[in-house]
Design a protein around this nucleic acid. Structure first.
Length: 506
RNA sequence: GCGCUCGUAGCUCAGUGGAUAGAGCAACGGACUUCGAAUCCGUGUGCCGUAGGUUCGAUCCCUACCGAGCGCGCCA
């Protein structure tokens, strides 16, 4: 249950009773906290309809709200500012974490991300999609939404053939073919991959292990090869989309332009091979056939040209399925200010695994999730290492550890009740907003709101810690202890949604 | 050329159709006998890329332009 859901209905009723107009109301948080805990801008919206000035309406409504609800409302320049009584805040805070908020949707979500070729180690960009996907999963699941995490394994096609050839060449000690896979990884693979294991299986296991090091997991791995097995990919596509499949220049095409794409796309090449697009089309149909109604893909921004194509496929099914792509901009990796190439085939690859091992999963995850996905991101390895101790994640974790310490120290001490001040109120109110933040983040699929919120909460904690002693005169301030106990749980829970640990001691 | 993403303080970035646009870093000055100083407190900075438009109100929505990155394969 969110905090605003304990407030909004009462205000809504008061407004409807007063004006006779059932207008949807939104609670805003004012920029300036001195204005109030929440604000309504409804008076502006109703001005035309009621033929009165916003201020007149606001004044009337403020009186009605103050009279008919537990909340105190004042009208200023057309805004209605709301102040929530402390008792309401504390009552909510006490029980808030026991009832998770719900995000209303009947969709079954399939979240596909990473989906790397099993031809080399994952790079830092994969790390970014992995963390975004993983956090989104954790958040939506907490909000009661049905989400399945899936990684599509591109274990078929020309690149895999090329990769296997490269491995063979290295094994035989002969030069790798033109456009083959160079770099340090193949020799590493040759040294570690047993004779009974296929090279791509080794790579996939290697990638999985890397992801585990940053606590990223999947519910399923979908192998492209399984789609090819019965040899019916093209036939199945024809069966479903016969009207939009045609032959030209010896190739087979999908008429994606009919659905808004720039040009039609090839399903089967002149040489008889199927394209990546053909298999991926069937894969997405497969998702729909498994009952998923909302397909979310996290792709690197270099694949944005592919979106229209897959959108066309979804539209062609004429099924009420949502298709959404979260575009993650690539991470530009630097080392001491020098750009580092991330090409999978180049020898100077900086693998995700080495970054995890260098700066740690907690710090890496925080860096990857604190910025919105579509933001271009520069990531300097040396800087990240240097800043490790000044990293925001430690600031948040430290707040948690400090609160743990107080709670530990207070055990067995006599409790006393004393007055609460503005600092108490501010921290408690911030804690109340946690569920609203989560719902907002979940509804918009913007996971990066969570670290922003947690940082702000941690900041209040540190200020609170300095100004508001919980233990003094050998006694515990009971109400304060309740506030920080819940705050501690929120910090810990929020961090867990990000896949970041919340140590009791640091 | 066409398309996608981005453009906010010196740097890295939040932010929302609403009130005086905010954090962190960096700089400077304070605060440890006291629940952990990995902390706190104080001191500045902005044509929110540019120009129009919609609106009672635009940094946010629309259009054009400028700049950065990416894409425009019968590669994956």
């Amino acid at each position: 249950m969110t905090f605003t859901s304990t407030i909004l209905p009462l205000i809504q009723t008061a407004v409807v009773n007063e004006t006779g107009v059932d207008y949807p109301i939104r609670l805003d948080i004012p920029n300036d906290p001195s204005h109030g805990d929440y604000a309504l801008t409804i008076a502006f919206s109703l001005a035309k309809q009621l033929k009165q000035s916003p201020q007149v309406i606001a004044t009337t409504l403020a009186t009605a709200i103050t009279t008919n609800t537990p909340f105190e409302a004042t009208a200023i320049n057309g805004f209605i500012n709301i102040r929530i009584p402390l008792t309401h805040i504390l009552t909510y805070l006490e029980s808030s974490l026991d009832t998770p908020p719900h995000l209303e949707t009947s969709d079954r979500i399939l979240l596909e991300y990473v989906s790397a070729n099993p031809t080399g180690p994952l790079h830092i960009g994969h790390g970014r999609w992995a963390v975004i996907g993983d956090c989104l999963y954790r958040l939506l699941t907490y909000l009661g939404v049905s989400v399945t995490r899936e990684c599509y394994v591109n274990d078929a096609g020309h690149q895999v053939t090329l990769f296997n050839e490269s491995v063979d060449c290295v094994r035989k000690g002969i030069p790798i073919p033109e456009n083959g896979y160079g770099g340090d990884f193949i020799p590493y693979l040759v040294d570690h991959c047993g004779p009974d294991q296929a090279p791509i299986d080794f790579v996939q296991a290697y990638q999985t292990e890397t992801l585990h090091r940053m606590d990223c997991h999947f519910d399923g791995w979908f192998s492209e090869t399984t789609l090819h097995k019965n040899g019916r990919i093209l036939a199945d596509i024809r069966d479903m989309f016969g009207d939009y499949v045609y032959e030209k220049d010896g190739a087979v095409w999908f008429k994606t332009t009919h659905f808004g794409d720039d040009k039609d796309r090839v399903l089967q090449k002149e040489n008889g091979d199927l394209t990546y697009f053909a298999a991926d089309t069937l894969y997405h149909i497969h998702k729909i056939n498994r009952g998923y109604t909302h397909l979310i893909n996290i792709w690197g921004a270099d694949h944005h040209g592919y979106i229209k194509r897959m959108e066309s496929v979804i539209k062609a099914t004429q099924k009420p399925v949502k298709f959404q792509v979260i575009l993650g901009q690539l991470v530009h990796l630097y080392k001491n200010g020098e750009p580092v190439k991330m090409s999978k085939r180049s020898g100077d690859l900086v693998a995700l695994r080495s970054v995890i091992d260098e700066i740690g999963s907690d710090a890496l995850r925080y860096f990857m999730i604190e910025k919105k996905p579509e933001l271009h991101m520069d990531f300097d390895l040396e800087l990240a290492k240097q800043k490790t101790m000044a990293n925001p994640v430690y600031y948040i974790q430290y707040a948690h550890a400090r609160l743990c310490r107080i709670i530990e120290r207070s055990e067995g001490m006599p409790g006393v009740t004393r007055d609460l001040n503005d600092g108490d109120r501010e921290l408690a109110l911030m804690g109340c907003r946690y569920h609203n933040q989560l719902v907002e983040a979940g509804a918009s699929f913007n996971v990066h709101h969570i670290p922003s919120y947690l940082y702000a909460l941690a900041k209040l904690c540190h200020t609170f810690y300095t100004n508001n002693p919980i233990i003094y005169d050998n006694a515990v301030h009971t109400e304060r202890l309740h506030i920080i106990a819940t705050t501690k749980r929120i910090l810990s829970h929020g961090l867990s949604l990000l896949g970041i640990s919340s140590p009791q001691k640091m």
